[in-house]
Amino acid sequence: MTDSAKRCSIAPKLHIPLLLLLLLFAACRPSTVEKESTESTYQFMDIDTFHIPILATPEKQLAYARSTFAESAEKVAALKAIKLMYPNDRQTSGMAAMELAFLQLGDDYRFAGEHQCTLAVKNYLAILDEYSDLPEVAAKVLWYLGWISCDLLDDRKTGMAYYQRIVDRYPEERLTFLPPAPWLTILFEDGKEPQAQYPKSALLWADLARLEIIRNTTDDKRAYHSFSALLQGTSKDRFGGLALKILVTRHGFTPESEQLVKNYLSSPTADEVLKKDLYLAMSIHRRNQEAGKPGQ
């Protein structure tokens, strides 16, 4: 037998054990567990050295920017991205701009310095200029300007002017609460996906402005006027009670306000906690009256 013939006859004999070994090896090899891919299919935009993912809607983009980060440079970048990504969605851009302006006040606005407040006011004013045609944005900006002026800069006059502008220009504009990002919202009803934006609240920016006017004005008449206007709106037992409490604690009791308190206390739908406050205020007022002190 020639060498080649020998090789030919031996080769199939070798192939069979090799094939069996390969089969065995293939069977014993642990199968690779398919790990869930963490690579997202998002596209990204670079803002201030940060990679900001581009989400499906401007609302989601805003929710992402608001909910994902604590107060940080990345949050600023994410908010800035909204206007660049969705320049035509002015309402969301305006909301993002307001968030940016709010960030000027620092981690805790109660410790914001004058410079921070001024910067914030500057930003809010710029927003007001840009989005004056959007009531949702303009009303909120004006309220924040009033709040910064009155509460943080102690400039009540300017603040009251802003509040008054809300009352005058946006009497029917309702508050919009921005909820957390839906994908971070763990609790929701079965079969009902959380929304990126809540429906508008029953409260009006104008009523909130009136409340602040009552709280900040030294003019009792103006306070009463604002209170009357506030009550003319939709039925707001709790909100009305709060306004009444502020009115009587800030501007003292008058026969008119006393009657208002009495009416509130006799209302079956009145808030129990506020009732207690008003009872207390009333009793102090009466004690003072009996002691001959001016009502407080």
Partner: peptide
């Protein structure tokens, strides 16, 4: 469900 492990930083499948 008050806690589950599928919270993500970005919108995903729920």
């Amino acid at each position: 469900l008050i806690a589950h492990p599928w919270l993500a930083g970005l919108p995903g499948k729920s």
